[in-house]
Amino acid sequence: MSTDNTRPSLYQSVISGWSAFWVIRGHLSPRIYLLFALTGMLLPLAAWWWLSASGLMDKVFMPGPIDVLLRLYTWFKDDDLLGDMWISTYRVAAGFSLSAILAIPLGIMIGSYRPVQALLEPLTDFIRYMPAVAFIPLVMLWVGIDESSKIAIIFIGTFFQMVLMIAEDVRRVPITQIEAAQTMGATRSEIVSLVIIPSAKPALLDTLRVTMGWAWTYLVVAELVAANSGLGYAILRAQRFMQTDKIFAGIILIGLIGLAIDQLFRWLHRKNFPWLYKK
């Protein structure tokens, strides 16, 4: 009797295992997920390493990972890396917080009350399409070239998008949740504070997570134009001295800080909204 009928061959099990990965919206075990994630991170790193080691490109234009690590070390030892990281993070935090503090209440008002929407949403939509970068000369004229100008540019870059996204989050609160509160005798301000805000909170935190990424983009823009410290400024100055390894180091560093902040937001999400993660 052949065993083919009872046990699949190695070839068959590899094929069926492989096709099981590609089920649309299917599941992956945490181990396999990690395997794919690491592959996705390490493959580009390996490609970069190979490209720089192969000699196909001049080292001046394409430094290898080791060069970048070494540069990072000297930057830390001789050039105040921590100071650059600190000032950049401070600028992002300040610009982002300022815009969140204003955008959250405004977005909630726009999403809840029609007159506020009519008054502010078309205006915000209009300003949103103005390129934030084009405001830099104006900001420098009005605010000067000190810290507040960098914060102002980050604010302009994130605030208007944030308001609209928060308003949309608030509008996505199911109308039945609101009507149920009305039939229970809730006042309008109770509906906002006891239904709309708690219901929209998880989406709001996600909006903040996404806009945080934009804040970092505008930080670099602000520092490229008007600064003498910070990661963006360091990248710009490195260009002048042809220090491509430092450019690489700066870009990767910003990516890592962004990744860490993103993970922090995701952790806050799981911590604060347990009902979304219990099934």
Binding site: P174, T176, Q177, E179, A180, A181, M184, G185, A186, T187, E190, L194, V195, P198, S199, K201, F273, W275, L276
Partner: peptide, 21 residues
């Protein structure tokens, strides 16, 4: 979709007790 997903069953039932009225 009328229940409040962030509140437990008992807190949903007692929701009206949070209201001024």
């Amino acid at each position: 979709y009328s229940l409040y997903p962030w509140l437990s069953v008992i807190d949903n039932i007692k929701f009206t007790r949070l209201l001024q009225i």
